[in-house]
Amino acid sequence: MSEPTYNFAYLDEQTKRMIRRAILKALAIPGYQVPFASREMPMPYGWGTGGVQVSAAVLTPEDTLKVIDQGADDTTNAVSIRAFFERTAGVETTTQTKASSVIQTRHRIPEEPLSEGQILVYQVPIPEPLRFLEPRESETRKMHALEDYGLMHVKLYEDISRHGHIATAYAYPVEVEGRYVTDPSPIPKFDNPKLGHMPAIQLFGAGREQRIYALPPYTQVISLDFDDHPFEASKADHACGLCGADESYLDEVIVDDQGGRLFVCSDTDYCQARQAAGFKGKEAV
């Protein structure tokens, strides 16, 4: 029995056309959530069905694909999505940020600055930044339409009154081009400053919630804050144990039963490239 044959990048051309239309609309109205007819994909919701559909719609046979899961190229989600596109699209894949033209990411922006011509595709679980403040979709749409965003600051106020500082550490709400308040997907707030004025195109796909939104290149993106409690991009106060980098976002890894811990770059490609270039951290072997 022969292998079933798929259209290039799994989705049929009509579906890709529909998704591309949504993407174009999203690029025309930065930060606005465009509804689209999300398809069933051969993976469960929550595994990046939105991101995969957006990637499938923008991939061309000449593209080189990189897939990141929480910064890493070698975790389950990244490996299986990479394998999915290797099989259904036959495109080249890579783990190097520089060598890739399309990057699908789950919850991180690569440390290596992106350039024009690259596309960064985010997997988004909940695209609506107001969701946990206002459960009604009809009302949140009205709030977006009327720029009625006072409630977003009530959330930050609650953070400060309870914790003494803005404790939201990921999915930190941003204002796009002075208009739409947008959820940047659950990236750490450390990555928020990279969203603005990025030369690459940023596309956000939410499969279960059936929404696509986008940040065109060089878009103004501002993280919401208070005058007396300004936004602060935070990370663990350490250097990477393997490559010694002190400006990258770090994961904390428990290494033994005695509570020993190791801080390492969450971006594996960045860390490996530095190690190959001869940088060494304290815990490097």
């Binding site: 009625d148 006072g150 409630l151 600051h153 106020y157 400060i160 005058d227 007396d228 409690h229």
Partner: peptide, 15 residues
């Protein structure tokens, strides 16, 4: 937060 909501809705941004 309840009392402050109206202030924030009209643009107060100083905690």
């Amino acid at each position: 937060g309840n009392v402050g909501e109206r202030l924030m809705a009209v643009g107060a941004r100083h905690y």
